[in-house]
Design a protein around this nucleic acid. Structure first.
Lengths: 118, 118
DNA sequence: CGGTTTTATAACCAGTTGGTTTTCTACCGT
DNA sequence: ACGGTAGAAAACCAACTGGTTATAAAACCG
């Protein structure tokens, strides 16, 4: 998993407009003007965002006369999730420790193991 | 899940130095100089990266005399994974469709249902 | 052909980012 | 009290971002 791929992916995801565009593309292909409609932004503004998404591999574009329909590409999203998944065990481990602590408190009260002379 | 939280999280993750710092912190707490050691970068450079990570909630810092040990905080990583997980069904669906298509080909050949006058 | 629609490109601007060097503060050990 | 160590803060810089307007290119429609 090349670092600059993750760089581009995370950077592309760090903008709410671009995340909204991706969310819209989950519903299916869309043209640039369709994608631009919900936003109070100029068309070239949207085109710039689309170029960022395209260079990150998050969308691909076809041809339909004048239109350039965009479609979602999920491969980089999976790479990003794979990277994040490396941390899943870490936070689940925290839960396990918390669970164990709570269980111990419930049973014996705090520091039951360390107590010696009651 | 507030959008500016995801903004800050993804933006923080979009830098290889910062991702390497997080990876190091999986092994446990570390001081600034410990974190800086592997990089060909000035100490203030690392401090700047740490501030970005801290403002994104990805690390927290304690006190140990002059040292400010950093520890990993996973909550924003979970939020990021939650957001990405919304796309998991999409790419799995693609696999399902591919699976279905391959199964159909194997059984009846393509377009078996549409055939009428052989 | 001429006009309209769809998209891309260019040039520009303000603000942010990633890095530097220099300096400052706070704490430790002797 | 004093010198050394850990880290932060400030000032600066080049490069990149996110937005704009204006213009151009490509393909349709009549």
């Amino acid at each position: 998993m090349a670092t600059d791929v993750l760089d581009a992916t995370f950077a592309a995801l760090a903008d709410p407009t671009r995340r909204a565009i991706l969310a819209r593309l989950k519903e299916g292909e869309a043209t640039v003007t369709e994608l631009a409609a919900p936003f109070a932004m100029s068309q070239p503004g949207i085109s710039k965002h689309l170029r960022v998404l395209e260079r990150a591999g998050l969308i691909s574009r076809g041809r339909d006369a004048q239109r350039r329909p965009c479609r979602l590409e999920t491969a980089p999203l999976r790479d990003a999730m794979d990277w994040l998944a490396n941390y899943r065990s870490y936070w689940e481990e925290s839960y396990q420790r918390l669970d164990a602590l709570l269980g111990e408190l419930d049973h014996d009260g705090p520091d039951a193991a360390e107590r010696e002379t009651p």
